[in-house]
Design a protein around this nucleic acid. Sequence first.
DNA 1: CAAGATTAGTCAACATGGCTGACGTATTGC
DNA 2: GCAATACGTCAGCCATGTTGACTAATCTTG
Lengths: 193, 193
Amino acid sequence: MVDLKSGANPLFLREEELRRGIEMMFYAYREFTSEPDRILAEIGFGRAHHRAIYFIGRYPEITVSELLGILRITKQSLSRVLSQLLDEGYVVQARGRRDQRQRLLQLTERGRDLEKRLSDTQRARFAAAYKAAGAEAVAGFRAVLAGIMDPADLSRVESLMPNGGEEARPEEPASLVKAGSGSLGRAQSKAER
Amino acid sequence: MVDLKSGANPLFLREEELRRGIEMMFYAYREFTSEPDRILAEIGFGRAHHRAIYFIGRYPEITVSELLGILRITKQSLSRVLSQLLDEGYVVQARGRRDQRQRLLQLTERGRDLEKRLSDTQRARFAAAYKAAGAEAVAGFRAVLAGIMDPADLSRVESLMPNGGEEARPEEPASLVKAGSGSLGRAQSKAER
DNA sequence: CAAGATTAGTCAACATGGCTGACGTATTGC
DNA sequence: GCAATACGTCAGCCATGTTGACTAATCTTG
C-alpha cells in the first residue's frame, strides 16, 4: 500500500494537502458523533433526535419552520422524531402568541438533561482538541470551517455570538433562517444517508 | 429567538465558543458532502459509494479488510456498494499475490474518472476555504481536527504525507489499519444514519 | 369578508445504508 | 490435517432521508 504517484512537484503537494483536509473532515466528523450516538442508542433515539434536541435547546421557542430551515430536512422527517420527543416528554410546544399557527418548541427539564448529557461529550472532545491545539489554531479552525459552510448557516452561527464573531457583522439582529437560501418547508438536501 | 441566558461571564463564553465549533462542524460537513451527493444521485449511487471509491483510489491495491477497517462498517454493508461498483465497472479486484485469499481493489479508468469528478468538487471547496483563510489558519484547522479524530485514523492520514505531517512521527511506515483500535471485520460504529 | 397563503400535521410508500446472525468456500499457516 | 483467516452471501431489521397527497387552523390581503 501507500502508493503515491509521488515526485515532489508543488501540484502534487497541493492536491495531497487538500485530500488530507477532506479525509480529516471525514474522520473527525465520525468521531465527534460517536459518543452521542452511543448514548442515544441506549434510549432508542438516533442522531436525528440529537439534532432536533440540540437546536431546540439552542433556540428556545423556535418554530417548526425555523427548525426545518436549520436542519434542511422535510417536515415528514422531522415529524417522526419530533413527535417522539413530544410523546416522551423531552420537548413541549406552545402556540405562538402573535401567530397562533406556530408551535413554539422548548425543551423540558428532561430534554435539557439529555441535551446536556449529549453535548457535554462533544464539548469535552472539542475542549481537549482546542486546548491541545491552542487559541490561534482554534481561530484558524473556525476560519476554514466558515469558508466551507453555506454562508446562510454561517451568519446564523455568528448572529448568536455575543460579539458577532471575528468578522463582526452588525447586520440583521437574528433571523435564524434566512429567507434567501432554500426558503421554507420543502427541503432539498438529499443528505445524510 | 436568540435567547442567550447571557451575562458576560467567562464560563458562558467558553461554552458558547465550544457550541459554535460544534455547530460549524455540523454545517460544514453537510455542505461539503452536498455536491458529491448530487452527482452520485444522478448515477444511482450514494455517499457510501463515494467513500469506497475514494479510499480505493487513495490506496490502490487495498484489501477488503483494510477498507473495512478504514470505513468501520460491516462487510455486509460494504458488500452492497462494492458489488455494485464491480458490476458497473468502476472497480476491479485481483487476487493477492502473497495471499491468494485477498482481493486487491483498484479503480478502473471509469472509477478514476468518477472519483476525480466527485473529489474535485470537494477539493475546490477546500481550496477556496484555505485560500480565504490563509496558510496559518489551515495549520490550525488541521491541528484541531487532529485533536478530534481517533488517533488511529490520524496516523493513517499522516503516514501518507510526503513529510509525515506537522508532528512528524517516523514510526511505522504505513499499516493503513492499526491492529489496535477495532481490529478487523466486525465494526462497531452505529454511525451515519 | 372572502379568498388565498402560510403553518403545521398526517398517511402512505420508497430508498439508502447502517446493523445482526448464520453460513459457505478458499486459502494459509501451524 | 485442521484451525484460523479473508471474502462473500442470504435474509431481515432499523433509522432516517425522500415524494406526493391531503387536512385543518389561522393569517393576510384585496
